[in-house]
Design a binder for these strands. Structure first.
Lengths: 192, 192
DNA sequence: GCTTTAATTATACAGTTGTAGATTTATATT
DNA sequence: AATATAAATCTACAACTGTATAATTAAAGC
């Protein structure tokens, strides 16, 4: 019997390794800041493998966004039924934006790539297809889509300011204080 | 009588022109995205003038941030006494983040440069020295600094999402709806 | 064990970046 | 009008970028 899906030197594993390295680098440095050689080195291959497996840097970026967007770290549709959603959302956001944490989410990728027009357009597309839509579907009441978008904006804003830029006192503040301040804000948007 | 401050070919005007062109380009494309030749062309000079007048791209960036930070477009300390501050802040933010508007503020510069470590550090310094401090001084009540920082984060987040990325429906939403949704959010943070 | 085929690398190219040194140009003073 | 001086440019360089082509290497099937 002949096996068709034979993996020599494990092509599938290499592809995954590149994708994972790209996610990390894009999240840290954005589309422009992450070089192909750097991404490839993170996957223990040479830069040419990237183009072999993904065609171009742009296509790689799009695929990375697909992956990071499909599992939201916060405000998941399932969690939207919870009674203390506003507070749990606030505390998840504060926890994740701790400095030492690796920025592992689509927001980092998107925000750090906002200055590049092509990358920003790809990111917008992916956000609209992914999180934004499922979130606004789950929210109740009038102007659900707008409220969802503002919610995402606040999450994004806090993440950049706290984690990337590291604004004082956001970066050094007592996490509990931040949660207490953010909770009523989120509550306004979730419950109206 | 001999005049000491003689300007040949108007050095001062050239310096200002470069600074202004740099502000525009940095706001649009961020630190990495704005090339020195491009910035220089916007001031009708060659790229070498930039280094002559500012020493390096980094120093130019720092000086641009000094200028854009010293005149806040929103949440000015003077306006903080106004009764309807939350609403006027919301409506100013919505008005300014209209797509056609040129991004003329320090937030754009900062956000688009967040992916570059050096640039992000310079930006953080300037924000802390400038707007952040005056704003938290003006806010009343407990945790004023934290509330001010969250306020700035929300402004930043809405700006990126609405203007730079152009998320639907934030970009196309009815401005009045957005103002109505943002006002109670800002009110929570301003008045507690 | 040899051949085939796919995974991986090596080399190279054209473009861009920030910047340095030498040179040219314009202007104010003599 | 000639000269001194500062403004502006020209040329160039070394480092980087994404990517294309050609060569090499390793493993599967016979």
């Amino acid at each position: 019997m002949n096996k068709k899906n034979v993996k020599r030197r494990n092509a599938e594993a290499t592809r995954k390794a590149i994708l994972e390295s790209a996610r990390k680098r894009f999240a840290l440095a954005g589309y422009d800041g992450a070089g192909l050689r750097e991404i490839a080195a993170g996957a223990d291959v040479t830069a040419m493998m990237v183009n072999r497996y993904f065609g171009s840097k742009e296509q790689l970026f799009a695929e990375v966004l697909d992956h990071v967007m499909e599992k939201p770290f916060i405000l998941t549709p399932e969690a939207l039924g919870s009674p203390n959603l506003a507070r749990s959302t606030a505390s998840a956001l504060v926890a994740i934006t701790n400095k030492q944490e690796e920025p592992l989410d689509g927001f980092s990728v998107m925000l750090h790539s906002a200055s590049n027009k092509k990358a920003a357009q790809i990111a917008r597309l992916k956000v609209e297809q992914g999180r934004q839509k499922s979130l606004s579907d789950a929210l109740q009441g009038p102007l659900a889509a707008e409220r969802a978008a503002i919610l995402l904006s606040i999450v994004a804003g806090v993440q950049v300011m706290r984690q990337t830029i590291g604004i004082t006192p956001l970066a050094e503040a007592d996490p509990d204080d931040l949660v207490n301040l953010l909770t009523p804000v989120f509550d306004k948007l979730i419950n109206g």
